[in-house]
Amino acid sequence: MTTRTGEELRNKQQTHYEDVNEGQMLPDYVLGPMTPTHIFRWSAAIENWHRIHYDQDFAVYHEGLPNILVNGSWKQSVLPGYLKDLCLPDGWMWKCSFQHRAMIVPGDTITCWAKVTSKKVIDGLGFIELEVGMKTQDDIETCPGQATIVLPLKGGRSVPYPFVPPKS
C-alpha cells in the first residue's frame, strides 16, 4: 500500500499502454485515517451544510447513522484524482462512474484501487478499462465503479489535450 507526495507526482514516469495487462492491479493509494476534521474541512471548502457531515448528534440521534459521514462529493473528487495520478504525466482520465455503497466514517482508512479489466487501441491511443473502488481497512467496498483511462503507446502519438474522444 502506498501514499503519495508532491515530489512523487512531480517526477512520475509515464505508464504506457504496453505496461498494463488484463487482470493487473494498478498501484493503490491510501488515505487516512479519516477524522472529523478532514470531513469538516471538505464541507467548509465547498459550503455543503448537510448536517450528517459535521453534526454528530444530528447524524447519530436524528438520522440513525453510526457517525458523521465522509461526503459523496469528496469521494467524487478523490477517486478521479487517484485515477488522474495513474495517468500522469501525459495520459488522461476520461470516464469514471461509481456508486456510493457503504459509509466512510471517522477512523476509517481508505484504499483507492484499480484493476485492469480490458484494453484496446483506438486511433493510436491506449484505452484501458478499469474496475475501481475505495475500500476501508475492513475490506468493505464503499465506492465500486468503472473507469476508462487513456495512455499513450510507446513511441505512439500524444494523448490529445483537451481530450478528444474517439469517434467510434
Binding site: G72, W94, K95, C96, S97, Q99, H100, P162, F163
Partner: peptide, 13 residues
C-alpha cells in the same frame, strides 16, 4: 431525506 447515490463523470479539460 437526501443521499448521494453515485456519479458518472467525463473529463475533457
Amino acid at each position: 431525506r437526501l443521499l448521494n447515490a453515485g456519479n458518472e463523470i467525463e473529463m475533457y479539460k
